[in-house]
Amino acid sequence: MIPALGLLVGLAAGLLLHPVVPLVLQPYLPIAVIAALDAVFGGVRAVLDGIFNDKVFVVSFLSNVVVAAFIVFLGDQLGVGSQLSTGVVVVLGIRIFSNVASIRRHLFRA
């Protein structure tokens, strides 16, 4: 419950403060968002499975974001940035969807 409130506080802070993201960081934002969503859905599923662990959640979020940003950075250096971004989005997207499917089974038994 409290983390969900924290999420809302963070959303509201972002909307109100309207931070200016440096142009250099902008290519990493979509990937970071997808990675964060992956961590969030993974965490929610773990909560429902009854095996949630805060340390694992924090570490998985941070490592997801860092690795995703690194892959995009590397792709940019190699000239295949958009392809690698697509790859990251596909992999994390599949994970998000199967986690959501599992959450759905827990919540609605369907």
Binding site: P3, A4, G10, P30, V58
Partner: peptide, 19 residues
């Protein structure tokens, strides 16, 4: 730690959406 990360994620979502 969890709450800080939750706030961070929310901030990341709205900030990148706006940006």
């Amino acid at each position: 730690m969890l709450i800080i990360v939750a706030i961070l994620i929310g901030f990341l979502l709205s900030a990148s959406a706006l940006a």
